[in-house]
Design a protein around this nucleic acid. Structure first.
Length: 1026
RNA sequence: GCCGAGGUGGCGGAAUGGCAGACGCACAGCACUCAAAAUGCUGCGAUCUCACGGUCAUGAGGGUUCGACUCCCUCCCUCGGCACCA
């Protein structure tokens, strides 16, 4: 009889499984796919801990079961390796984050392998690998190119003592984690992702997802949708209006003052303004200053009295009551929610307290429906915040709050003073970090390109800037951010080239401008001549129906008929050789496009061929004539394609072919005391050529947040090796979409509750965006989301290095084996609940495995024959009961009871039948044990002579017939209390059961009268009522 | 303050409205042993009783029900999240 040597067995099977790659997912399989996902760990220096193992084991069990159920299973693993601890370690020790990460991931990988998780290691990823983050950078650029990434001033946590910006994780209760000093808010230009644009989608998408309710509600609360109205308060003595958001428009008649957030930009503007209405500027300024100097903690402290000052000189009118109201500023109003201004009344406790403090008049307009003392509310002794019946509200009196709200909105909307409006708590994602250890943001800032681009529009013969599509053109492109110059050229009827050039020369164009030129008709060749004469650099030259020498004599006759003198015609002809000029001009311009129409009276189709042989792009539009008003052209939308919206001027994306922007080596990892990333000190890296104008430019030195790489890692697992090894490009991404389509969505994603809001929302946002731009096939990435409870240390507190209560799995694996540890992790308590690590607990599961081992040895060494004649049917029942329970328990994440039923089965087997178990039954038992304890199951399976791995054999089905026992224990109750039990046969009738019960010796003494009533639950109990 | 989860032996915990405490840890007794470890068996909520058996027990108090850990109401406590969101 062999002894159970877990060390030997585990090493043996780790090697064998690797060798045969039995856990590698197959991209081309015809089997149904199954994608299990656990949050990939941050590879910290302290190694894997028992908390990681809990989630990994659970999903490993699910994955193994699915594999045995015939699915093509993908269960991948990787490293979320960018992050502060590694960076702080680098600051302290000087060891590069790259080197530390390598070491840490090696440790983690080794530990995870030792646990026997069925990961597909061929798909391992690392967010800090340039091969990975080149795609993260590409993705950021997609956000940027679609207008969802923008730079704006946002608050960062600033530690004035350490002189560095802090991540949210580094702030504890408003204090710096490092030095314990108070943290300030500072404004800094930061990259933001416009997540608010997806608020509604993120909320709506939740509806069809199988997320546990806790996660779902946390996401809903985080998005924080509330529906209400925006009301306008006219300013007294001015045309201005102040907009206010409210969800309680039913209280509008009690609104007696407005309150504006101290940080509100409109307030700042009013203070700067020389002739502003404000009469107490200094007082307001001082107040805003005092608020800014308060820490977040002081400001929001519960029960803290709110402070504020009145904005003297500013009064508004309540649109419902027509009464004048004062306007105040106070710290309790949040600048970024709603409009940053609220109307205040007696039905909000904060407003109420504030008004009392500063003696602002109050009015009551809501009467509680029951219970409360309305007298006190009416006398303004108490604040009533709830809903109720409206009073003091004119025609709305007597209505309930709910009824009145839409009516009041409609009433005010009619006067143009209110619109229904939805607000969200969700804010845009601050995407910049002023740190080293993150993905560089792949943008380059170019001062030259930051200049407002100019467009020079040159009209043609007999034309003016008031004609054709020119006014429309100017208006539209100005709205797109361009400076459009449309000079009126002299003697339009009698063209003199030099006169025209002189006017153009003085039209406001300067050397170094970002210039585009649009020329219409004769303006086309004039443009070419102008560019050539002054050697102008032009970004985009657009010629609309340009006239030229190539035209035939007939056309020249036409011009002549229009009054152009022969002399001038010769001049035109002379410079007007498109073939010659354009060839030269093209050298000075980046891009040239010619628009032609098939029915242009001046440029007939016969001569258009000449243009088409030229280098510029020719766009042929049908039926546009000469592109002038005579042809009915007053708007020319096609041309807009040439001039895209000017966004975030000066930020030029790094071209795809230059990705990744790799992190350079730095001397010091310490953030700078100006609040910038240490990257800003690497001049060689920072200073680059502008990809756009080739002039001097600087790289963005902010890096991406930790959340970036983890927002798409579930997609990365699906991508081919080629995608990571090859160049990054939109075309290459598209090649991967098929793989995404095969595997998405993730069927089951388990992770911690701490990621229920941020990570999970970021990833969903990311995915929805890429779905919208056609780069990801599904809108929602995760079909099912569950969460595990955390494991507390022995002492009931969170495991942490400093407390010293972290449990190291290495020693446990060595002493008890990975199988015992896996079982204990599952057995320790309900999977979704917080549990406390009990160092003795693993003894139980370890003993259980020893017991399984001994049972197997007895059965197959003492009785080596394939099957034992007369083996107990009871044994089959025990096994099939366990198959049923284990199968369903895994699906409902009740892993602790699954383990317990495995234990029960073994206990019952040893008790009932010794080792007389059928061969098939024992196989089935090993199979249901296999997902939990894969090593021992595999070993015992092999010992039975099986050649194929147990982990790829079919999952056993239970036979319901075997589960039915002939007799059962009938519970006998008298007046609802259990008084006895009796053995009864299955399917016993109510009458027989009653007879059995009444005859029972223990029941007789409870019989006091005739049976009044009988409750009979078949095959379970009978309850006699006397 | 709001939202969510939870409260059951000495401990971790189990229980489609139907025998509360499965399974495990700890503890005690017995067997094996010269002895110990390991293993196996037995016991293990409180209380009354020599005993058969009874009574009380699932945070507290009420309710619904033949019957409640489970459903409803009120309250207390613990944990997690959000936190001046108008």
């Amino acid at each position: 009889m062999k002894k159970y040597n877990h060390q030997k067995i585990e090493k043996k099977w780790q090697k064998a499984w690797d060798k045969f790659g039995i856990y590698n997912a197959d991209d081309t399989s015809k089997k149904p796919k199954w994608y299990s996902l656990v949050e990939f760990p941050y590879p910290s220096g302290s190694g894997l801990h028992v908390g990681h193992i809990r989630s990994n084991t659970a999903m490993d069990i699910v994955s193994r079961k699915r594999r045995m159920q015939g699915h093509n299973v993908l269960y991948p693993m990787g490293w979320d390796a960018f992050g502060l601890p590694t960076e702080n370690y680098a600051i302290k020790t000087g060891i590069s984050p790259q080197a530390a990460t390598k070491k840490n991931t090696d440790t983690f990988r080794k530990q995870l392998r030792a646990m026997g998780f069925s990961f597909d290691w061929s798909r391992e990823i690392d967010t800090t690998d340039p091969k990975y983050y080149k795609w993260t950078q590409w993705m950021f650029l997609q956000f940027y190119k679609h207008g969802l990434a923008y730079k704006a001033k946002a608050e960062i946590n600033w530690c004035p003592k350490d002189k560095i910006g802090l991540a949210n994780e580094e702030v504890e209760n408003g204090k710096c984690e490092r030095c314990g000093g108070a943290v300030e808010k500072r404004l800094k230009e930061q990259w933001m992702l416009k997540m608010t644009a997806y608020a509604e989608k993120l909320l709506g998408g939740l509806k069809d997802l199988d997320f546990i309710p806790e996660v779902r509600t946390q996401q809903e609360n985080w998005i924080g949708k509330s529906e209400g109205a925006e009301i306008e308060f006219p300013v007294v003595g001015s045309k201005g209006k102040i907009k206010v958001f409210t969800t309680r428009i039913d209280t509008i008649f009690s609104g007696t003052f407005l309150v504006i957030a101290p940080e509100h930009p409109r307030l700042a503007k009013a203070l700067e303004d020389q002739d502003s209405f404000l009469k107490n500027k200094n007082e307001v300024k001082a107040y805003i200053e005092s608020v800014r100097n308060k820490s977040e903690l002081e400001r929001s402290a519960e029960g803290k009295e709110k402070t504020g000052v009145e904005l003297k000189g500013l009064r508004v009118i309540n649109p419902a009551t027509q009464e004048e109201m004062p306007v105040w500023t106070s710290e309790f109003v949040i600048a970024h929610y709603g409009t940053g201004i609220v109307f205040a009344d007696a039905h909000d406790s904060r407003d109420f307290a504030f008004a009392k403090k500063y003696n602002i008049p109050l009015k009551v307009s809501i009467q509680p429906t029951e219970g409360l003392d309305f007298e006190k509310i009416k006398n303004l002794e108490e604040c009533y915040e709830g809903e109720g019946i409206l009073c003091n509200s004119e025609q709305f009196n007597g209505m309930t709050s709910a009824k009145a709200r839409p009516k009041i909105i409609a009433w005010l909307a009619e006067k143009g003073l209110a619109t229904p409006k939805t607000s969200y708590k969700l804010r845009d994602w601050v995407f910049s970090r002023q740190r080293y250890w993150g993905e560089p943001i792949p943008l380059i800032h170019c001062d030259n390109c930051a200049k407002k681009p100019k467009i020079l529009l040159i009209h043609g013969l007999s034309g003016s800037n008031q004609e054709n599509w020119f006014p429309w053109f100017k208006r539209t492109l100005e709205a797109r951010g361009y400076d459009v110059i449309t000079p009126n050229l002299p003697n339009a009827q009698h063209f003199i080239l030099n006169d025209w050039l002189t006017v153009l020369e003085h039209s406001g164009i300067e050397a170094g401008d970002r210039l585009s030129v649009v020329g219409h008709s004769l303006g086309g060749p004039t443009a070419c001549q102008f560019i050539r004469t002054y050697k102008l650099k032009v970004e985009n030259l657009v010629l609309v129906a340009p006239t030229g020498k190539s035209q035939g004599p007939e056309q020249w006759k036409n011009l002549s008929a229009k009054g152009v003198s022969q002399e001038h015609l010769l001049v035109i002809q002379e410079f007007n050789d498109q073939n010659k000029d354009l060839a030269k001009v093209a050298k000075l311009t980046k891009k040239t496009t010619i628009y032609l129409s098939d029915n242009d009276p001046y440029i007939p189709v016969e001569v258009q061929g000449d243009y088409k042989t030229l280098k510029p792009t020719v766009k042929l539009l049908s039926n546009k004539g000469h592109f002038n008003a005579t042809a009915g052209i007053t708007e020319f939308p096609e041309i807009l394609a040439e001039f895209p919206v000017v966004a975030d001027a000066g930020w030029i994306p790094v071209p795809e072919k230059n990705l990744p922007v790799k992190l350079p080596k730095v001397e010091k990892y310490q953030p700078t005391d100006t609040g910038e990333s240490p990257l800003s000190k690497v001049e060689k890296w920072v200073n680059v050529k502008c990809p756009n104008c080739k002039g001097p430019a600087k790289r963005e030195t902010d890096t991406m947040p930790n959340w970036a790489g983890s927002s798409w890692y579930y997609l990365a697992y699906l991508m081919s090796k080629k995608a990571f090894n090859g160049p990054v490009s939109t075309e290459n991404w598209k090649l991967e979409i098929e793989n995404l389509r095969n595997w998405l969505p993730v069927d089951w994603y388990n992770g911690g509750m701490e990621h229920a809001t941020r990570h999970l929302l970021y990833a969903r946002f990311w995915n929805q965006f890429f779905h919208d731009i056609g780069e990801v096939p599904m809108s929602e990435p995760f079909k099912k989301r569950t969460a595990h409870g955390i494991i507390l240390g022995n002492d009931g507190t969170k495991m942490s290095k400093s407390v010293g209560n972290v449990v190291n799995p290495d020693e446990l694996i060595k002493e008890f084996g990975a199988d015992a540890l896996r079982l204990y992790e599952m057995f320790i308590g309900p999977f979704d609940q917080t549990v406390t690590w009990d160092p003795r607990g693993i003894l139980g599961t370890s003993r259980f495995l020893e017991k399984v081992w001994r049972f197997a040895q007895r059965r197959f060494y003492e009785n080596p024959d394939q099957d034992i004649p007369g083996a107990w049917d009871n044994m089959s029942r025990i096994v099939h009961k366990a198959i049923k329970k284990v199968s369903s328990d895994i699906e409902r994440m009740s892993f602790n009871t699954a383990v317990s039923s495995l234990m029960t089965a073994v206990n019952e087997m040893t008790l009932t039948g010794g080792s007389t178990i059928k061969y098939e039954d024992w196989k089935s038992f090993l199979k249901i044990l296999a997902p939990f304890a894969p090593f021992i199951a595999e070993e015992l399976w092999e010992e039975m002579g099986n050649k194929e791995s147990i982990h790829v054999t079919p999952w056993p089905e239970f036979d319901p017939k075997l589960l039915v026992e002939e007799t059962f224990k009938l519970v006998i109750q008298v007046n609802g209390r259990v008084r006895a039990t009796a053995e009864a046969s299955q399917g016993i009738s109510e009458a027989d059961a009653q007879a059995l019960a009444l005859a029972h010796t223990d029941i007789k003494k409870w019989i006091t009268s005739e049976v009044k009533k009988v409750i009979f639950v078949p095959n379970r109990l009978i309850n006699l009522i006397f």
